Amino acid sequence: MNLRKMQTGQSGIIASVKIGGSLGLRMREMGLVPGTEITVTGRAPLYDPVKLRIHGQTLTLRNSEADYIEVDIKVETDSVEGKD
Rank of each mutant, 00 (worst) to 15 (best):
E37W: 01
R43S: 07
R4E: 10
K51H: 12
L46C: 06
A15C: 03
G35E: 11
G21E: 07
R4Q: 08
L52I: 05
I54L: 15
Q7Y: 06
Y68A: 08
M30W: 05
N63E: 11
L32W: 02
T41H: 01
D67K: 10
E70L: 06
T8P: 04
G9F: 05
G20M: 09
T58Y: 06
P49L: 10
I38A: 00
V80M: 08
R26S: 15
I19N: 03
G82H: 10
L59N: 02
K83L: 15
T36H: 04
D84Q: 11
G20V: 12
T41P: 01
P49G: 09
V75C: 02
A15Y: 01
H55T: 04
V40W: 00
S11C: 07
K5A: 12
E81G: 13
A15L: 06
L61R: 02
T36V: 15
R43Y: 05
P49H: 09
M30I: 04
I19Q: 04
R53N: 12
I69F: 04
M6I: 04
K5W: 06
P34R: 06
T41D: 04
S16V: 04
L32N: 02
S16I: 04
D72G: 00
I13R: 02
I13L: 05
V50W: 01
V75I: 12
D67S: 08
I13T: 14
G31F: 11
I69L: 08
P34A: 10
M30S: 09
V17P: 03
Q7M: 11
L3H: 01
G12N: 00
L59T: 02
G35W: 11
E29W: 03
Q7A: 14
Y68C: 05
R43A: 08
V33E: 15
R28Y: 07
L25E: 15
E37C: 05
R4F: 06
